[in-house]
Every structure is written in C-alpha cells, then in structure tokens.
Design a protein around this nucleic acid. Structure first.
Lengths: 229, 229
DNA sequence: CTGCTTTCGCTACGAGTCGTAGCGTAACTG
DNA sequence: CAGTTACGCTACGACTCGTAGCGAAAGCAG
C-alpha cells in the first residue's frame, strides 16, 4: 500500500488525510490517460530495500534507487514526496505478513511473538531504516502517524490477540477494570517491542531461544532470583 | 570527554583504540605550539546541542554549527572527523551526571531510575539525535562502541548499582548462579531502557508517574491482571 | 484510426552540503 | 628571537536534493 502522490489532479489540494476513500476498491475507478506502471512501484520498493540493506540509511540516495529500479528519478518523485515516505512503504511491507502464533499457551505465544519481532528487526534492510525513520518521526508528526499505522500497530495487534486468546483459554483473570485494560496492553506491548528493539537495534546482540525464555520469565512472573519473596 | 583528532602528529596513524593513554592525566603533557582552545570545544558542543534541539538531526549541518559556535568550519573538522562523532560527544554530556537514587527500597529506586531515563530522553536535543546515532551505529561498529561507552553503559551502571543496593538491604535473594548473574542484569536493563526508549522515542508519549508505577509492577512481579495464578 | 490525457525517460538546473586544501595570522614555548 | 601549532578565511570539487521542461509512449473515447 504505497502512498502515491495525488495522481495528477492539477490543482486540487487533495485533503491532507492519507486515507484515499474513492479510488481504491476493486479496479481503478476511472483511468483516462496512461496508467501508472504497477511494475515500477514494485521495482522501486524492491530497489529501496536492496539499497537499504547494502548502503544503509545514509548511503541511500534517490538517484541510486532510481537507477537500480531502472526508472527515471522524476518517476520516483512523482509517487513519493520524500525519502522518508518511500522508506516507510518499503519497510512496511516486511511487517505485512505478521501472524499470530496461537500455540496453545501464553508462554509459547509470547516466545513466538518475540522471535518474530526479533527476526524482522534482524533483517539488514530494516536495521538502520527503522531507527532512522523513528528519528525523523520525532520531528514529523505526520510521519510518526504513518509509522504507527504501518509498523507499530500490526505488532501491537499480535500482542492484543495473544492476550485475548490466553483469556479465552482461562490463563488470565478477567479484565479487572475495562478502562485500564487498554493501558495494560500498552505497557505489555511497549515492554516487549522496546526490549527487543533495544537489544537488536541498539546493543546489536542476537536474540536467542534462551534469552527469549528468560525474558518471558520476567514478563510472566517475578524474575527467578530478583525477588526473594 | 571529546574524542579529538590526533592533535597533530603528522603521519603517525594513531592506534585505532580510542583510549588515549598518555596525554590525559593532569595538565597537558607537552605543549609546544599554540594550544587548542578549550572554549572552542565547549562552544562547539553547546552549539551542536542547540542546533540539534532546534533543527533536529537532518537539519544539523557542520556549517551551521561552526557559525553558531563562532568557529571556522575547518576548526570543527580538526577535532571531530564526522557529524556522528561530534553528536556522540555533544549528547553524551547529558548522560554524565546520572546519579543512583538509593531511596531505600527497590521499588523506589526503579521508579527513580525510570524517571531519570525518561527525562533524559524527553529532551529535544536528544530525541532525534539518539535514534539517528543508533541508526548509524548499526553499520559502524566503532560508533556503536562509542555509543555504548558514553551513553548505554552509564545507564546500565545505575541498574547494576540499584540491584547491588537492594541485595545489600536483603530485598533480593542471593545470586543463584554467578555465571548467569550478568545475563540477568542485562535482561533487566534491556527491559527498562528499551521500554522507556520505545515509549518516549517511538511512540512519543510521555512517561507519567502512574505509568512508571504500573511498569514497575510488571518488573517486580506478575502483572496485576495478567496471570490469574 | 484519430484525438485526448496522463505517465514515462531524459537532460539540465539551482541550491545546499560535505570534507579538504591553501594561505596568512595568532598564540604559546624555549 | 625562532620554532611550532592552532586558528580564521576563502575557495574548491564532488555529491545530493528536488524541480522544470521536453518529446515520446501508453492507454481511453469517439
């Protein structure tokens, strides 16, 4: 789901909301001129991820991407207004096929989700890109929203689903207070996502099965030797 | 503690280790020509932090920093070989005056440490800079080491001290296995640092006293409504 | 097939940044 | 004083960004 520039309409400012309501469903609504090449879209996004993995964020230039995708630089700018937006779409694809494990126990589900996060973050094309996007997001609320929608929310959905599944299995007490349930899920998610991000992206250390087990221990109960009582 | 370029020695490659052994202690060992202006160092680092807070990482240019610090651009390059190194030193200063709270209870200490992290990360001059540095660090092992030494390790020291203090007070069981004690501390630190980073830097949401309390609940024991047993 | 519309590839451009080189001058030592 | 080093200044080549203008290609309506 790229974020195409308003596809031509010469001067209509196009409402700032990124949710295009009309021209989506099914086939293109009205195509009057030469249609945009879908192949070019894929080539550009693929080239972006490849360049990202090879050169990192700093080495990624629009010119390189254009050459690699066998596309004119102008074509690139016709669809994505900036490097940031392009990289969001290129990286977001990686987060599209997140699946909820549902392995039958809360512990197994958590460990599977952690492993899934870790694998995603370990990819060379996402390493620097994610952090650089987060960095830009701190100054650009629009970009932060897009990051949240395309990358963070899909992950959070997994945690929420896992919690619901565990609750259905009777592993969890009933929601104490409906008002605070959302905040609890937020804290749990921030903890899982943040810890994995820190270890993989900042420390650069791998996430092993053993580490995952220990971390899940911490999440599910008192840390083995942390508290005596 | 800046990381000055080898201060002149025309061709000696200067061992890659950033720990300069000799010329540190006390006053300068041997100064033959015009000494480097310490005021310029401070002015550059101050200007870097100011520009960082105003313009963010992307807007920060060496030219601007030089003008703001009333220093020639060449002077800037004589001391820091790249933007990354300069920003590491500029930001690392913020982490210099970390203090271990030692409030008398493990819970209070954890909450104080979390609040301290949160305050540091909430500063406008560190927001984008830290993430951008982390991003570069994923591709530059040397930079990652410097980040670890200047920014991550000081934080980890706090957590380690807090754990030792709690142990001395009898709040913690004795170390189960000396070999795994280090790993435990690592997991706890990664969890605290990563969660705070994610919430502040990625989600952009503030860390309130209430949130800190809930998070500490999660760390110290089973999450209130997470596990029934 | 003939217009009409929109996209595409290409070239060129101005603005901005990076990092370096060269030069004369300032500061400090012996 | 001479010797050494840092400093400010200017200029430079290489690179990137994002845009403009043009002719050609690819579809659609009649």
């Amino acid at each position: 789901m790229p974020a195409p520039q308003p596809p031509a309409s010469p001067d209509v400012p196009a409402p700032e909301t990124p949710d295009d309501p009309a021209p989506a469903a099914g086939t293109a609504a009205r195509a009057k001129g030469r249609p945009r090449s879908a192949a070019a879209d894929r080539a550009i996004l693929d080239a972006t991820r490849e360049a990202l993995a090879e050169l990192g964020w700093g080495g990624l230039t629009m010119g390189h991407v254009a050459i690699r995708a066998k596309v004119a630089k102008t074509t690139l700018y016709r669809r994505w207004p900036s490097k940031n937006e392009l990289v969001v779409d290129a990286v977001a694809i990686l987060f599209d096929d997140l699946v909820m494990p549902d392995l039958g126990s809360l512990r197994a589900d958590i460990e599977a989700v952690v492993a899934q996060f870790a694998d995603l973050l370990a990819r060379p094309e996402s390493q620097a890109a994610l952090l650089a996007l987060f960095a830009e997001g701190t100054r650009d609320p629009h970009l932060r929203r897009r990051i949240r929608e395309a990358i963070v929310d899909p992950q959070k959905r997994l945690v929420r689903q896992g919690r619901a599944a565990a609750q259905a299995r009777g592993e969890l007490a009933a929601d104490t207070d409906p008002r605070t349930a959302g905040e609890e899920i937020d804290i749990i998610f921030d903890t899982i996502a943040g810890t994995v991000e820190h270890r993989v992206l900042v420390s650069g250390e791998p996430i092993t099965a053993d580490w995952t087990r220990r971390f899940t221990d911490l999440l599910l109960g008192p840390f083995p030797s942390l508290l005596s009582g």
